[in-house]
């Protein structure tokens, strides 16, 4: 099949970008979307032009590197599918395809389709962990965990941090991402001691990164390639509210001796 692509090209974070039209001839239906772009890029290099920059790594839908808007929908809009797993059999000869980077204030465009998602790392660094240093762990079976709780934790922990939720949200909120980590740890006994502080710190960091607020639109859940349920946002809000209510200024404690 032959396609026409309209791709966002931008030199760097400081230079304005624009849509540029490319032909993608002889596309095989067995190619992945990224392989189709690989072939276009090979042609560009041979013509002496710069290839289209896009992020990718594992190409099996788990590393979370890839992702952009295809015809206005994050990852192209196929259920539980990242762009690296999206195959060209879903397109038809003559299609015009619009490819744009994630758009959000908190995700500046670095080049073409590559955006800076380091805000996600800073949200995790603000509390998305259990404070357990290596070596201090009790036996793995010392603390039984209800299977249902463990399964719910796993559902939330499946997040790959791709950013589709932010890109799909009209408010550019990172609530699904942040809620997923809060929810993962809140379902486990290991996550309890720091549960309140975690929700306070992570939500505040999320706001400081200039992500928008959640208004329960649900685009995030609809486009999440890992099917993270929107309930995690409710869980996050519940934890944050409860923790805010009980928050007290830190008390200075004198050291021993």
């Amino acid at each position: 099949m032959n396609l026409t692509l309209h791709v966002w090209r931008q030199k760097d974070v400081a230079t304005p970008g624009q849509m540029v039209r490319y032909d993608a001839p002889n596309v095989s239906e067995h190619m992945s979307f990224l392989e189709m772009l690989d072939v276009v890029n090979e042609g560009l290099i041979l013509k002496g032009e710069e290839p289209i920059a896009f992020e990718h790594d594992c190409r099996e839908g788990i590393c979370g590197s890839c992702g952009f808007m295809i015809n206005g929908i994050a990852h192209g809009g196929f259920k539980n599918t990242t762009v690296c797993q999206l195959h060209m059999r879903h397109f038809a000869d003559g299609d015009e395809v619009y490819i744009e980077p994630w758009r959000a204030t908190a995700f500046p465009v670095m080049k073409d389709l590559v955006v800076d998602r380091s805000a996600f790392d800073r949200i995790i660094a603000s509390g998305g962990y259990v404070s357990v240093s290596t070596g201090s762990a009790p036996d793995g079976n010392a603390l039984p965990i209800r299977k249902q709780d463990s399964d719910l934790a796993m559902d939330a922990a499946a997040c790959i941090g791709c950013g589709a939720c932010v890109a799909s949200c009209p408010n550019a909120a990172a609530a699904l991402f942040t809620g997923a980590k809060i929810s993962h740890l809140a379902h486990l006994p290991q996550g309890q001691p720091e549960r309140k502080e975690r929700s306070l710190r992570m939500v505040r960091q999320m706001n400081a990164e200039l992500f928008g607020n959640c208004t329960n639109i649900g685009e995030c859940e609809a486009t999440c390639p890992k099917g993270i349920p929107i309930e995690v946002i409710a869980g996050m809000n519940g934890d944050f509210l409860a923790a805010s209510w009980q928050e007290r200024p830190p008390v200075e404690i004198a050291g021993a001796g």
Binding site: Y129, S136, A137, P138, G140, A153, L188, Q190
Partner: peptide
């Protein structure tokens, strides 16, 4: 395994 469980890995 002990370390990972303590970190909250949902085995």
């Amino acid at each position: 395994i002990d370390q990972c469980v303590a970190q909250g890995v949902p085995f």
